[in-house]
Design a protein around this nucleic acid. Structure first.
Lengths: 347, 347
DNA sequence: CGTTGGCACTCGATTCTACCGAGTGCCAAC
DNA sequence: GTTGGCACTCGGTAGAATCGAGTGCCAACG
């Protein structure tokens, strides 16, 4: 986590400071109001006076865990404060009702991977009422099971390729000449011979002859391999964008966050950056996008047959309910991993 | 639309009333402020005093075209007022810059139909800064060009079908028995013989034998035809949802509208309802969804080879810039129609 | 020395008042 | 039918007063 890589030497706080900090964060998450010393004194089991709490708070503020909106208001957690809170969260589990809901979902869900991912995104939103993100992809190692070249008309053809993970790709192939059905059928045969068992990054020996069939084959292979860089097939499904309007109050903030969510590529990068850092939560500025400074993103990786294959994520305000969100993301990602690895029957 | 069915006899307004109404609507769209009699008197070429305008306004209000937020504020258009305005809009055209932008877009865009539609949605948003909707689908009459059954493992197979419009569908086919490659290849052959040239609603004669191959064929055909009802393949692409946050001020309104946009099926229905009524704009309550009461939706149909094939739409506040929005929707839909009908070269 | 109660102080939020002015409705005169 | 005149309405804004939650500081206490 960030703790290892980003903040090299993270100080620990003594028990009392930690308790106070956690109380402030918890209450602020709950109420969205600056938290005062007296309510902290009341709620913690510390049995100290507000005055003592205040003097500790001064320290915590100096060390960057807390902030004051203005002199003589209560304290509000900083990103660093949230970070401490999250890192010291004993990971909770989710309610039995939600357990049930998730189990039900995964026993009933059927259909294409994409649909499953999309539905999963909706599930996460229902579970947490935060905006959810499901990134799927990374089947780079899938191999070709079958390819087929199909005539659309004399000069337009469609290359359909089936991969071992069930993905189907299609590519338009044009020819400058009118190709006969026989040409196409023969090209199709050759393509199969050439490509079956290869993955997209395998170099294959294409015929160099100049007849129609060879040209078709070359074109088709070129088209297919042109896909390689993007084939990762990263797909994003975003659910519950309307929750953004609930999570943030400034219309302007809502707009900014929505604008980010619209850029799907950016969302993928965001989620993967977080995972690459070994994090499971990115808080405020940690996520690296200024418009998302008031957001926290919870992520959990998914894998297929042991290979990383995407992630699920939840986006909410920095004062999000971390325990619930993290638990939901974790449990769903585990189910999804199992589901995609084929432990369930698919339609 | 609504005019034909809902408001059977739509009265015309005399010239002066019409001018005043239009001035009010135009200014309100521009400023979002209630419009007073004097500014109307100043801006119209009518050469009448504010007092006269006022007395006309009283009539317009009684007839339901205008409303007052409160006594002694200016007037604000009602849905009916906007409706009159829109119905009497001499349809404008779009700026040369935008023309250019659209032309450029359509000469450069390439790739799958879906991607084109998605990109088009983004284009519309860029052009108008309203949320845009592109509904594609309705290739019900496409016929099968080629099908292919592929082994995933002994009991899981993938049926890949290519249609005359370039669509590719895939379906999982399970067998209770371990199918050999030979079985699958033979089933594949038979499926081709059976299905090529048929459309999804064509009944085909499936073999009734009980051997492995026949069972596979039956399963595959069943799977494929199960798709028929939904095959319409209605797809929605929504662009610029962040614009919602700009168009409306109440956070609550923003939330409601976003929530509607999340339900893609609902969006499709909405757009199609409007088209079915022969409308090109639905204003406020006309669209039939209470949460969209403060929205206007501009639509324009698209077709492929003469067949209706979806629509483009723009969603904004009732005080949207109708002329621009309608022009943009119309022009883009025309381009898209031409593009999808194959008048341009595709990659 | 850490802890505590006491206390003056700060400053956003709330309430109240006064007031301004855009815009209306009405009416008498043209 | 149109117009200028005029009293009236009522939302919006500005300023003043007040409130109170919460702070910082300090002296006293164990």
């Amino acid at each position: 986590m960030v703790r290892h890589s980003v903040t090299p030497s993270r100080e620990e706080l003594d028990h009392r400071k930690a308790t106070i900090l956690e109380a402030v964060v918890a209450e602020y998450i709950d109420t969205a109001q600056p938290v005062g010393s007296s309510s902290v004194a009341a709620v913690t089991g510390l049995d100290v006076s507000p005055a003592t709490v205040r003097s500790e708070m001064v320290t915590l503020e100096r060390e960057g865990y807390l902030a004051q909106p203005h002199t003589s208001a209560g304290r509000v957690p900083t990103d660093k404060g949230y970070r401490y809170f999250v890192d010291h969260l004993r990971s909770g589990s989710i309610g039995p009702g939600q357990q049930q809901q998730i189990r039900e979902f995964f026993t009933n869900v059927r259909g294409e991977v994409q649909e499953v991912l999309e539905q999963t995104s909706n599930l996460l939103t229902r579970l947490t009422s935060y905006t959810s993100v499901v990134v799927g992809g990374g089947h780079t190692h899938a191999t070709v099971l079958n390819v087929q070249l199909v005539n659309l008309d004399a000069r337009h053809h469609l290359l359909v390729s089936v991969f071992s993970d069930g993905t189907v790709l299609k590519h338009n192939v044009r020819s400058d000449f009118a190709a006969t059905h026989v040409d196409v059928a023969e090209a199709s045969r050759q393509l199969n011979a050439l490509l079956i068992g290869t993955s997209l990054d395998t170099r294959v020996q294409v015929p160099s002859r100049h007849d129609h069939v060879a040209t078709l084959v070359r074109e088709a292979v070129a088209e297919l391999h042109a896909e390689a860089p993007t084939f990762d097939g990263e797909q994003v499904f975003i659910g519950g964008s309307s929750k953004v309007a609930e999570s943030f109050d400034g219309v302007e903030t809502v707009r900014k966050v929505l604008a980010i969510l619209e850029q799907q590529l950016l969302v993928v990068t965001l989620v993967e950056d977080i995972l690459d850092q070994g994090l499971s939560v990115a808080i405020g500025s940690e996520n690296g996008y200024e418009p998302l400074a008031s957001c926290a993103v919870v992520v959990a990786p998914i894998s297929v047959d042991g290979e990383p294959a995407g992630a699920v994520g939840l986006l909410g305000p920095t004062r999000m309910k971390y325990r619930e969100a993290m638990a939901a993301a974790r449990v769903v990602s585990e189910h999804l991993t199992r589901h995609l690895s084929g432990e369930d029957e698919r339609d």
